[in-house]
């Protein structure tokens, strides 16, 4: 092979590589996006009949301004790395779908406490990252909030300021806001979930 032909073929291989790369990358990201919609989540009846039905009764589904939070907004991280990790974890859901772990409402209720605890632990660990994608203490107008809310938020916000992150001080959104999107599990006992003394993050 001549020197110029060699160069040419390298160039072609490189171009093909880039081309395929773009297609796969695009396809990968499209797949990521497609699986990041509410429609996808509730394509499984397990998700639709229980948690979705309950969620339609809450403020994150319908409210005065029409701004919504959908399933992935609360359950799938926005940052790329965290998102890929969550998607890989989600293949576990596929397995349970196939074996039918929660394929009836009764089975779902029986397992709800386990599932809820997974979510609580995750949110506690991430300092309720997904909530904070939309909500931020710093921009809450305490004057406009109900007195009960303002009182508790000021307290939590002060800790947040002092420690840099609510997680160090111990209190984050999920500590005080369990059950905002779905019904709480039967086993949940508020007396065991006093903010700061909760037993629901233990293993």
């Amino acid at each position: 092979m001549t020197e110029s032909a060699k160069k040419k073929s390298t160039l072609i291989i490189l171009l093909i590589g880039i081309f395929l790369g773009i297609i796969f990358w695009g396809g990968f990201n499209t797949a990521m996006e497609m699986t990041n919609t509410e429609a996808f989540c509730i394509s499984c009846h397990e998700m639709e009949e229980n948690v979705y039905e309950e969620y339609t009764d809450t403020i994150h589904y319908m409210n005065r301004t029409g701004v919504r939070a959908t399933c992935p907004d609360c359950h799938v991280p926005r940052e790329w790395v965290h998102k890929v990790v969550r998607k890989i974890q989600a293949t576990n859901e596929l397995y349970h779908k196939i074996v039918g772990t929660i394929d009836t409402p009764e089975k779902f209720e029986a397992r709800r406490f386990e599932l809820a605890k997974h979510v609580w632990k995750t949110m506690k660990r991430t300092d309720s990252r997904e909530c904070r994608n939309c909500h931020d203490y710093e921009y809450m107008d305490f004057d406009k909030q109900e007195f009960r809310s303002a009182e508790r938020h000021e307290e939590a916000f002060e800790q947040f300021e002092e420690h840099g992150a609510a997680r160090d001080a111990g209190l984050t959104c999920i500590d005080c806001h369990k059950g905002i999107a779905h019904r709480l599990p039967e086993e949940y006992d508020p007396e065991k979930d006093i903010p700061g003394e909760s037993i629901y993050y233990d293993d």
Binding site: T58, I59, E146, F147, R148, G179, I180, R183, L184, P185, E186, Y188
Partner: peptide, 12 residues
């Protein structure tokens, strides 16, 4: 205070 968020059922 507001109470829309709180459910009273057999479970909770």
């Amino acid at each position: 205070h507001k109470i829309e968020k709180y459910h009273i059922s057999l479970r909770q």
